[in-house]
Each structure stands twice: as structure tokens, then as C-alpha cells.
């Protein structure tokens, strides 16, 4: 009897930890950071971390959809530069007006849907592995961005566009609010709609989903469209905040960060498992670690190594917890 009840509470604990463990890890990191560097806990710094995390965080949400459906998207880093550059070029062409900004945003979203759709069709109808298609996309988008700027920078001439990315609402940076709002919306789509259920089913067992009359190709294609839209939102916010896009460096390494955030948050690389909740906090954990590395004066060049180790460690933990 006793042993049973102990086992039960043990099981309960494990369940709670597997669900909210990531929040506990984040709180632990924040406490450690606060002790190591008291200025870390200042509201200004916390908001800053949230702000900086938003760009990758929004992309990571899209990548989570792709990964749960059993795919992968490596093109997001180059795509954010391409879409950011496209938005700036469009605003510059249309002129510095609210209408111009609005049209540019609309056009950028439209382009992202097109690119995501094309990626999805190549993967599902062309039967090309997602890894190959999005690796190709990564090279293609970057090369296009570099080509049109001759390796230089896309500068925004529009004050209205540039001020958007720096604006605050209710004392909070706009990108942070968009990140939170987008995460909530994504959570609802993934957990409370038919489409979300299909994403899990397709990622967990594509054959059974097909036999269950689910349009598997359609579901998988749409996850790439969502990934594209996420990249567009991130690209617009990023390029308007910076007022420019660097054809060579904007978005570099975003694919690693986005996949890392999803994996840290418990999304499975083999599909069928994952949550927006996890990805949201996974992105914040990455943000806090980045901030800590800067505050502790760790060489910028070593930050990639730390991230690499974290992503490998996160998968190792997933494997261990399975046993």
C-alpha cells in the first residue's frame, strides 16, 4: 500500500515536472542570473530579454507546427532576411504613409504564404524530403537577398515603418506583445481545432492518418504556410525595428535558435509531440542564456557553442525521460 502511494506521488511529480519543468528551469535560470548579476533583474532588462527573444520566438512557433507534423524548416533564417528586405523595398516604393506601411505588410504576408505553400507542395507532391527542400530554400533566399542589395544593406526611407518596430504599447515593446498574442493564438489552433488535431495525427502516424481519411498532404503543406507567415511577422517587426536589413547577416542562425527553442520545449524531431507552451518558454530560456552570456562577458563567438550544447542536451534529456 505504502509503496504504491509513494509510486503514485512519484508518478504525479514526474507528470507535473514533464509539463511545467520548463517553467521551473526558466525560474531557476532567472534566479541564478539575478545572483550573478543583480542588474539582470531590473524590469528594463527583463523587458529587453523578452523583446529580443520575440523575433526568434515568433519563428519558433511556426517551426513547432512544422515539426509536430513531422517536418523541419531550415529556411527560416534566410527567409526572415528576404521578407524583411521585401517589406522595406515595398514601403520605399509605395511611399512613407500609413497606407504604404499597411500595403507593405500585406504584400509581405502574401509572399510568405506563397513561399510556404511552394515549400509544402515541393515536399508533399514532389516527395522531396523537407530537409532538402528547406536547405535549398535557405540557400536560395539568402542568395536573392544578397543579389538585390549587392551584398549591402536595405535601408528604410519610411519613418512611419521604422517607428512601428520601436513602439511601445501599455509600456511594453510591440514585438513582445505580438509574440505573446501570437503564441496564444497558435496554442488555440494547435489544441482546440480540427486542423491542430490533424497536425498531431499526421506527425505521429502518417499512414494511419491517411487511412483515416485525413488529407495528409494538405495538412503538411499548411504547416509550412504557417511557418512562412511566422517568418513574415518576425521579419516585419525586425526590419522595422532596425530600420534596415543586412543582406549578409540578418537572420543568420535563426533556424538553429528556432529549432532549439522548440526542442527545449519538448517538441519531438520525429513528429507527433510538442506544444506552443513549451516552445514559448524554450525561446525565453534561450533568451535568458544569451543575456547571461553577454552579462558574464563570455566571448560572443562561443555563444553558438553554448546553444549547440543546449540543443543536444535537450534531446538527450527527452530520450532519458522516455525510459
Amino acid at each position: 500500500m505504502r509503496r504504491d502511494s509513494i509510486k503514485k506521488t512519484g508518478g504525479r511529480f514526474a507528470e507535473i515536472f514533464s509539463k511545467y519543468g520548463i517553467v521551473i528551469v526558466l525560474i531557476g535560470l532567472v534566479i541564478v542570473s539575478g545572483i550573478l548579476s543583480p542588474s539582470f533583474l531590473k524590469l528594463r532588462n527583463i523587458l529587453n530579454i523578452f523583446w529580443q527573444t520575440s523575433y526568434v520566438g515568433i519563428i519558433a512557433i511556426g517551426v513547432t507546427f512544422v515539426m509536430i507534423a513531422g517536418g523541419i524548416d531550415l529556411s527560416v533564417g534566410s527567409m526572415v532576411a528576404l521578407l524583411g528586405a521585401f517589406a522595406i523595398t515595398t514601403v520605399n516604393a509605395v511611399g512613407d504613409s500609413y497606407l504604404g506601411v499597411f500595403l507593405a505588410i500585406l504584400a509581405t504576408l502574401g509572399l510568405s504564404v506563397g513561399l510556404g505553400f511552394a515549400t509544402g507542395v515541393a515536399i508533399t507532391k514532389g516527395r522531396i524530403p523537407a530537409f532538402v527542400v528547406t536547405l535549398g530554400g535557405m540557400a536560395i533566399y539568402r542568395s536573392l537577398v544578397l543579389n538585390f542589395a549587392n551584398g549591402g544593406v536595405y535601408m528604410s526611407n519610411s519613418m512611419k515603418y521604422s517607428s512601428m518596430g520601436m513602439s511601445f504599447v501599455l509600456g511594453m515593446p510591440l514585438p513582445m506583445l505580438v509574440f505573446i498574442g501570437y503564441a496564444l493564438l497558435a496554442h488555440i489552433i494547435l489544441n482546440n481545432t480540427k486542423f491542430g488535431r490533424y497536425i498531431f495525427a499526421v506527425g505521429a502516424n502518417e499512414t494511419a492518418s491517411f487511412y483515416s481519411a485525413i488529407n495528409v498532404d494538405w495538412v503538411r503543406t499548411w504547416t509550412y504556410v504557417i511557418s512562412g507567415i511566422s517568418v513574415a511577422i518576425s521579419g516585419i517587426l525586425l526590419s522595422s525595428m532596425m530600420g534596415s536589413v543586412s543582406s549578409s547577416s540578418t537572420g543568420n542562425g535563426f533556424e538553429l535558435d528556432a529549432i532549439a527553442a522548440a526542442v527545449i520545449g519538448g517538441t519531438s524531431l520525429s513528429g507527433g509531440k510538442g506544444s506552443i507552451f513549451g516552445t514559448f518558454f524554450g525561446a525565453l530560456i534561450l533568451g535568458v542564456i544569451n543575456n547571461m552570456l553577454v552579462m558574464l562577458n563570455v566571448a560572443v563567438y562561443l555563444q553558438g557553442m553554448v546553444k549547440g550544447l543546449i540543443i543536444i542536451g535537450a534531446v538527450l534529456l527527452q530520450n532519458l525521460s522516455k525510459e
Binding site: 495525427a201 502516424n205 499512414t207 481519411a213 507527433g272
Partner: peptide
Amino acid sequence: TAGIVPILEVYKNITLMNLE
């Protein structure tokens, strides 16, 4: 491989084909 979605819950498997 074709009947069940093993890592999904029982109720989700039951309603999978008729989510409408």
C-alpha cells in the same frame, strides 16, 4: 501502422475520422 495513432490518447483516436 495504419489503424491506430499509437502516441495519441484513446478518445482522440476514436474521434479522428469524424472531427467535423
